[in-house]
Every structure is written in structure tokens, then in C-alpha cells.
């Protein structure tokens, strides 16, 4: 054996260690990384479906106005300035109710808070948005005595 390979067995041992280490790394990596990782990007593809499967709480306004449900209220709402306001904006999350009408009413804003939350005057509100000093405007009566909350200007 030429002089320069005198200590070759050290290199062989190092090489074996390196390959064993690399093998262990590859095996552990193959076991640990989910099979669908990296298909669409640096993430597990299945998580998209996991997140899609989360439950829905807001049913959306399209489900309210069906026949034998709330046709009248939806028509009344559409006829006035509150047409852009979604049902669940005031009535709360009602997906459970839409799926089974016998089930619970959602929590909603109580009393005058129902109106004042949007219409109490604030300097930061857009100038062209209808807002009043509630205490002055109400003149001692409740909002609902003069206004129908579905069709407030009628």
C-alpha cells in the first residue's frame, strides 16, 4: 500500500459513519414527514381539507327568505335603506337555526343598543351616514316606538 493511504481505515470508518447517519436521517424523515407534504407548496395538502371542514356559524342572508320562513321580513328589509344590512348583522349567528328552525335564537343587541351601535353620532363616522345624538333625538321614547328596524324610514 502506497505511503499516502497508510491510514485509510480511518477514512473508511468515517465514510461508514457518514452513510449510516445519512440513512438514519432519510428513514426518520420519510417516517415523520406526511405523505402529502410538498405537493402544492411547502405544506401538507390535507390541511386545506381540514380547515374546510370547520363548522359554519353564520348561515348568510340567502337562507332567511325562503318560502314559509321569513319572506315578509326579508321583503320589508329590501324595501328600505337597511337593504344592505345582513340579517345576522343584528340577529346574530343563526346557522344552527337555519339547519333546524326549532333550534335556538342567537344573541342580539338589546334595546336601543340595536340602533345606537350604528347610529349614535361619532366624529369618526362618515359625514353622510345617518347619525343622531340618541338622548336628544329619542325625546324620552324608545327607538322602536317610531322606527321599524327593518324599514326605518317608513
Amino acid at each position: 500500500m502506497p505511503q499516502r493511504f497508510r491510514d485509510a481505515e480511518h477514512l473508511v470508518r468515517l465514510a461508514i459513519l457518514f452513510f449510516v447517519g445519512a440513512l438514519v436521517f432519510l428513514v426518520v424523515r420519510a417516517l415523520w414527514v406526511p405523505a402529502d407534504f410538498g405537493e402544492l407548496g411547502h405544506f401538507r395538502t390535507g390541511v386545506l381539507q381540514d380547515i374546510r371542514n370547520l363548522p359554519i356559524h353564520y348561515a348568510a342572508r340567502a337562507s332567511c327568505g325562503q318560502a314559509d320562513c321569513h319572506e315578509e321580513e326579508v321583503a320589508s328589509l329590501a324595501s328600505d335603506t337597511h337593504a344592505s344590512v345582513g340579517c345576522e348583522s343584528c340577529h346574530g349567528a343563526l346557522a344552527a337555526h337555519a339547519a333546524d328552525p326549532k333550534l335556538a335564537k342567537a344573541a342580539t343587541l338589546e334595546g336601543d343598543e340595536l340602533c345606537s351601535r350604528c347610529h349614535a353620532s361619532l366624529a369618526a363616522r362618515p359625514k353622510d351616514f345617518a347619525q343622531v345624538d340618541i338622548e336628544v333625538h329619542r325625546e324620552g321614547s324608545a327607538c322602536s316606538e317610531c322606527h321599524d328596524s327593518h324599514a326605518p324610514t317608513q
Binding site: 380547515i51 374546510r52 359554519i56 356559524h57 353564520y58 348568510a60 345576522e88 350604528c118
Partner: peptide, 23 residues
């Protein structure tokens, strides 16, 4: 925020957009 991924992939809008009274 997931942009309500469970809603928008089923044809609904996000919860915040759904309830926003002024769009």
C-alpha cells in the same frame, strides 16, 4: 385570519363581510 376558508370554499362570503351593514 383564515379569510373564513371554510366558508369561501363553500360559496359563502366571510363572516365579517356577511355582517358588515355598510359593505
Amino acid at each position: 385570519c383564515t379569510l373564513c376558508y371554510h366558508r369561501i370554499t363553500r360559496g359563502l362570503t366571510t363572516a365579517c363581510c356577511e355582517v358588515c351593514p355598510t359593505q
